[in-house]
Design a protein around this nucleic acid. Structure first.
Lengths: 282, 282
DNA sequence: TAAGAATCAATCACATTCGATCATCAATCG
DNA sequence: CGATTGATGATCGAATGTGATTGATTCTTA
């Protein structure tokens, strides 16, 4: 039996809703545990399965029987802003989002004040945030909830109307709260990031975010590489308004070039084993 | 059994409304309490559940699993009780509160705009509220969450700072949002109701409520009879500012006398069998 | 307030799993 | 035919998960 055939068998053999153990695969394929482990590690490296201690798990949403090609990151409809529900979006690309969120946390120092916009990546960030004396202004209800148990974090909300779909608060009026708030940093997700700038799909959101950006000294965009040059309609701001972009290894050289040419600091977040682990449960 | 399998089972086993104990999980999964504790701590660290003493709870908005209903994450009506365990414990007198809350609902008409202040009785009221085209301004996070799934209810929040203890938003500044809001009715709880007026215990709360009351045409106080003439320190407003008091049968004749003498309409809510039954579930 | 019960974190011992290394074997190529 | 390459299997020390014990902490109840 050849390596590729075995790989195919392994992937077929994986159970969709539980861990398939090394022993199980050993028995099923008639090869040694060492070989199975090697296979699993390689397949994991290629992104075809999720390696865990004792075995492997099928990756959610990957059902292929044919031998798959090395990955170009597929276009993922993320964006809690769009029609996809918030929760659904949190599970797409979760390891990458975690990595990006973690990289974003490097920008935090105790005592800092920041604006955190709504979105699945920023939500992940809030989730991972330490309990330090930060001051956070957010429009997102999920982030608010998440920060409820960080006793040291001071949370401020802008006034406004609740939008259920996106679970955010948007303020149609100029807001006293906002006028008094000045943030060192603003963390923002997006639907797309193109040469034309930061893109969203919702008009109200665009207005709100523009207003928020005015209150921040430094704008930090959290966007996984599938967002770069993704199709989108409404521009929130030009590239010049952005200070930092945090993305993942999938960023193309070309894209990096035009980002840096616009004076943007580009940070590449490394996906660690823990990031994957944390996403397994979903 | 593998770690990830166990994690999945644990999360499936969790309930948003109550704490699932370590013992319960131990029995269900057939592993030692030590392992369960380790798992719970890790899952908490990863943000997948809420660790509490004796067990864990499902985090609201994370109830998607293998069997997940993919789209519209319906928030359950009484979910936040589970989420904010403090509320569960503070809802004493629940049947009476339900009765009072139900009586308060009589004041609602579709299209009405109202202010709902924070508090356990007003929270009960929000919980029982129908899904009609109301417009609600509230400072209370639990009420906000509760109204998330009333699709027809328009919810507005004042800007301000989050106070964890009370789960409310207080606005130290004059707020643009508030200036533009005008409510037909305001529903408010209290710590005590005396001849000196509506009493609270918290200075910040007093300020905020005063400001809110200015924006409402009619002030409706929800206070069970134990609050009448109860000891309290800070006066929010004199009796003259109050239009209606809803209380229960325990109201003394004397108290009723001085309330009505102040021009206040007094309503007595009848506790039904269903109120008692509904309260047991919590 | 104090005693008792429940829960917890830390730690140890044991079992499983892992990764690195090396020897073997088969296929390929000069 | 012999040498080289690459895959496989075995071995072993290291790392990790698990269960039990213990002493500390927190909650409850009297």
């Amino acid at each position: 039996m050849h390596l590729q055939d075995r790989w195919k068998l392994i992937i077929d053999e994986l159970n969709p809703d539980r861990v398939t153990s090394v022993d199980e695969l050993t028995a099923r394929l008639g090869v040694s545990p060492a070989t199975i482990r090697r296979d699993l590690n390689e397949l994991h490296e290629l992104g075809h399965l999720l390696r865990v201690r004792g075995g492997a798990m099928r990756i959610e949403g990957k059902h292929f029987t044919a031998k798959a090609e090395p990955k170009t990151p597929e276009f993922q409809t993320d964006s809690l802003i769009g029609q996809s529900s918030f929760l659904a979006s949190t599970i797409v690309n979760a390891p990458v989002k975690r990595a990006i969120a973690r990289a974003a946390l490097d920008f935090l120092k105790p005592g800092i004040s920041m604006i955190i916009d709504g979105g699945s990546t920023t939500y992940t960030m809030a989730n991972m945030m330490a309990n330090e004396p930060y001051h956070v202004l957010t429009t997102s209800i999920p982030i608010l909830q998440c920060l409820l148990d960080r006793s040291k974090v001071k949370v401020t909300l802008p006034g406004g109307e609740l939008f259920r779909e996106q679970r955010i608060i948007l303020n149609p009026y100029e807001d006293g709260m906002l006028q008094n708030f000045s943030a060192a940093k603003m963390f923002i997700g997006c639907q797309a990031l193109t040469r034309n700038g930061l893109m969203q799909s919702d008009t109200l959101l665009v207005q709100s975010e523009r207003r928020l950006m005015e209150r921040a000294d430094q704008v930090i965009v959290l966007a996984d590489s599938s967002k770069i040059d993704a199709p989108a309609s409404l521009s929130v701001c030009p590239l010049t308004a952005i200070d930092v972009v945090i993305t993942d290894e999938g960023l193309s050289d070309a894209a990096r070039e035009w980002l840096e040419h616009a004076g943007i600091e580009v940070r590449i977040a490394q996906v660690t084993a823990e990031d994957r682990k944390a996403s397994e449960v979903v």
